[in-house]
C-alpha cells in the first residue's frame, strides 16, 4: 500500500515539476560532420533496438547510429537514391559485397577443419558453409570499412542520454 502511494506521489511530483521547470523538447546527442543525431531520433532507435536486444546499452545505440550516419553520408555522396534502408543496402552492395568472393578451397578448408563437428557430407553442407563464410567476411569488411570512413569525418558525442 505504502509503495502504491509512493508511486502515485512521485508521479504527481513529476507532473508538477515538468510544468514548473519547463519541458525538454530536443537536443543533439552526437554529430558526424554536419549531420546531427538528435535526442528524438535516439529515443526512437533506442526503443526499437531495446525490443530486439533488451540488454543493449545507450552507448552502443549511439555508436550504431553514428556508423549508420557515416554510411548514409557516403552513400549520398555517391548519388545513390532511396530511403535509408535502401541507401544502406545499395551502398553495402556496391562497396562491400561486390568485392567478396569465397573461393572453393576456402569452403573446403573450413569443412576439413570442422569435419568432426559438422558430421555431414561436404555436398550437403557446402552452401551453408559458403553462406556462413560470406556473412563472416561481410561483417569483417564492413567493420573495417566503417572504421576507415570514420577516420575521415568529424565525430563527436555531445551527451549520452
Amino acid at each position: 500500500m505504502v509503495r502504491y502511494i509512493l508511486v502515485l506521489v512521485t508521479l504527481f511530483n513529476l507532473i508538477i515539476a515538468s510544468h514548473t521547470y519547463g519541458e525538454f523538447i530536443n537536443r543533439v546527442v552526437a554529430y558526424v560532420d554536419n549531420i546531427p543525431i538528435t535526442l528524438l531520433d535516439f529515443e526512437k532507435e533506442y526503443l526499437k533496438m531495446k525490443e530486439k536486444l533488451p540488454n543493449i546499452e545507450k552507448e552502443e545505440v549511439i555508436s550504431t547510429m553514428i556508423n549508420k550516419t557515416v554510411l548514409l553520408k557516403k552513400a549520398k555522396e555517391l548519388f545513390l537514391e532511396g530511403k535509408e534502408e535502401e541507401l544502406l543496402n545499395s551502398y553495402i552492395d556496391l562497396k562491400i559485397k561486390a568485392s567478396i568472393i569465397i573461393p572453393e578451397n576456402q569452403i573446403r578448408q573450413y569443412y576439413e577443419q570442422n569435419k568432426t563437428k559438422i558430421n555431414k557430407p561436404y555436398s550437403s553442407v557446402r552452401a551453408q558453409i559458403e553462406n556462413y563464410l560470406y556473412e563472416r567476411e561481410l561483417n569483417k569488411k564492413l567493420k573495417e570499412h566503417i572504421e576507415e570512413l570514420k577516420e575521415a569525418v568529424e565525430i563527436k558525442i555531445v551527451f549520452i542520454p
Partner: peptide
C-alpha cells in the same frame, strides 16, 4: 527535429538544445 538537422548543415554548430517553459 528536422529543423535541427537543417541548421546543422551550416557546419558551425556543436549542440542545439530546445526547451519549452
Amino acid at each position: 527535429n528536422r529543423g535541427i538537422k537543417r541548421v546543422f548543415l551550416k557546419n558551425v554548430f556543436e549542440d542545439i538544445r530546445v526547451e519549452i517553459d
